[in-house]
């Protein structure tokens, strides 16, 4: 499934589209950025409730396919700017991390 298909299939709100043709290979949930940095697998969809600009740097470092902000979180202006500047896919949803991950898993990720 590509990032674009992920967003459509699970009704994610697109904030920055990012690499829409990239394959989403797995899913990682985490809010401690230092943990995400070392543990998130490349090509995953990363679900988080963190919204500061460091999220973009960590997503780039971990080479995730895209970020999904859960529980209705809104990105800080600095995060939105950074994601746009670096072309990092940034999406959001009102659902919890658990519900999102369960849906992704049921959808084949």
């Amino acid at each position: 499934m590509t990032v674009e298909e992920l967003a459509q299939t699970f009704s994610l709100e697109c904030l920055v589209s990012g690499e829409i043709t990239r394959q989403v290979q797995s899913c990682y949930i985490g809010d401690l950025l230092s943990r995400v940095m070392g543990q998130a697998p490349a090509g995953c969809v990363w679900i988080t409730i963190m919204t500061n600009s460091n999220v973009c740097a960590v997503a780039t470092l971990a080479d995730v396919a895209c970020i999904v902000l859960a529980e209705g979180e809104q990105p800080d202006a600095a995060l939105l700017d950074a994601a746009m500047a670096h072309g990092v896919g940034l999406y959001r949803s009102d659902r919890s991390a658990y519900m999102l991950a369960a849906a992704f898993a049921a959808g084949g990720i």
Binding site: S34, M37, G38, A57, T60, L61
Partner: peptide
């Protein structure tokens, strides 16, 4: 400290 290599191109 945790040993995560610095990526100069990002940080």
């Amino acid at each position: 400290r945790r040993r995560i290599p610095n990526r100069r191109d990002i940080f």
